[in-house]
Amino acid sequence: MDETRRDRDTEGRAHNARPRDGLGRPLPYGTPGVERQPEGVVRAPAETVREAQRLLDAGMPFHAHEVFEDAWKSGPDAERELWRGLAQLAVGLTHAARGNTTGGARLLRRGAAAIGDFRGTDPHGIGVGGLICWAEELAGRVEAGAGATAKAGNVDAAVEAPRLRA
């Protein structure tokens, strides 16, 4: 494969076939990576939550973000902000685990704000209030560079994984 060109599908859209690590970082071609989540999967909300929680618990928030993104794109308009916000929380944890404290904290807070309108309703059993508290607390620790799971500015994504269910 020509490594100087981006992978494209038959219609010319970018399709990155490069292997990735557990935090979604690209690896050199030919390096074994973590299996990517298939794109465009339509799942029932309970299955979305279950799969995303499995990935979060495994320390793979980037992959959980892809599951939430599918729900955001395929779900009802009334829930679009919920799924988008959850995807942002997962990406915030991804950035924090990669050592990007500024981006991690910013996305954690943005995700918390996006799901704020769902506080108290716990759609699909998702504990929105608890997730908002988790995101704000983690964002503060990430910015401060503190925390039991911090390693050179990074956090352990599996240890810091939130509980999605109320």
Rank of each mutant, 00 (worst) to 15 (best):
G103I: 03
L107T: 11
R106S: 14
R80Y: 07
L108N: 05
T94Q: 15
A144C: 06
V49F: 08
A105Y: 00
R36A: 15
R18Y: 13
A87R: 07
P123G: 05
G30M: 05
Y29I: 15
P19Q: 12
L23D: 08
A52Y: 05
H65D: 13
R141A: 10
D70Y: 14
G140T: 07
G40S: 12
A46G: 11
G111L: 04
E66W: 05
R119K: 09
D57T: 09
V41M: 15
G22D: 06
A87D: 03
F62V: 01
P26R: 11
A78H: 11
I126C: 06
A71K: 13
W134Y: 00
Y29T: 13
P32Q: 15
V49S: 04
G40F: 09
T101Q: 13
L138T: 08
E39K: 11
T102W: 11
L23W: 02
R119E: 12
R25N: 15
V91P: 01
A135G: 04
H95T: 08
E79R: 00
A139M: 12
M60K: 15
D70S: 15
G92T: 11
L55R: 14
L23Q: 07
L86V: 00
A52M: 05
V34F: 11
V67G: 09
G120Q: 12
E136Y: 01
T48S: 11
A46L: 09
P123R: 06
S74V: 10
R36L: 13
L108G: 01
G59N: 07
G145Y: 04
G129K: 01
L86G: 02
R20D: 11
D77V: 03
A90H: 01
R84Y: 14
E66K: 04
V34M: 12
P123I: 02
A78G: 14
G92Y: 07
P61N: 02
A144S: 06
Q37S: 13
Q37Y: 10
R54E: 11
L23K: 07
L93P: 09
W72C: 07
R43M: 10
P76R: 12
G116F: 05
C133M: 04
R43H: 05
A64D: 06
A58K: 09
G22S: 11
P45Q: 01
A90N: 00
V41A: 12
G120I: 10
Q53F: 09
A139F: 08
V42Y: 07
F118D: 03
I132D: 00
G99S: 11
E136T: 09
E35L: 14
R25A: 14
P32Y: 13
P76I: 01
G103N: 06
H63T: 10
